[in-house]
């Protein structure tokens, strides 16, 4: 058993114009998607998280409770909170995250007046450029 790396972070990391409990959940979802947290890993206790992020303990409690309801984690009385997620559920949140990132990108591009075709071309360009950068790094 190991603790996931760098959970919590700083109070400054939160966007104060959005509900904080939502951002705590998103942070954990990202860690799960990236594989930084895996099945059976113990996560910080609510108190530890609140102290580390300098956040209201009730807010952290709400985030943890929702994560339990979403079947991402499970709390074992007296032992702590552990990652407990079915592979289908992980795939679901992975798709959901990807969807919201792409949708945000597309809607911003549309708001700037780009057509779907232009967006597609540019996206392709970005992907090609990214690939070149990676190849350059290897050289």
């Amino acid at each position: 058993m190991h603790y996931g790396k760098d959970i919590g972070g700083d109070a400054m990391d939160f966007d104060l114009a959005r509900p904080i409990y939502q951002q705590i959940i998103d942070e954990y979802k990202k860690k799960l998607i990236r594989g930084e947290l895996r099945q059976g890993d113990k996560i910080l206790s609510q108190r530890e998280y609140a102290e580390k992020a300098r956040t209201n303990p009730n807010t952290v409690q709400r985030a943890y409770r929702e994560m339990e309801n979403m079947k991402l984690v499970e709390t074992v009385r007296g032992q702590g909170t552990f990652v407990c997620i079915a592979p289908e559920q992980l795939e679901l949140i992975r798709n959901e995250m990807a969807g919201s990132v792409i949708e945000l990108c597309v809607s911003e591009m549309k708001a700037l007046g780009f057509t779907e075709q232009e967006i597609r071309v540019r996206l392709e360009q970005v992907l090609v450029n990214a690939k070149e950068v990676i190849t350059d790094d290897r050289v």
Binding site: L16, A17, P19, R62
Partner: peptide, 14 residues
């Protein structure tokens, strides 16, 4: 506080 952030999309200062 959380509900205010949710409804208004602003920080408490704003």
């Amino acid at each position: 506080a959380e509900q205010l952030r949710e409804e208004r999309g602003m920080s408490l200062v704003e």
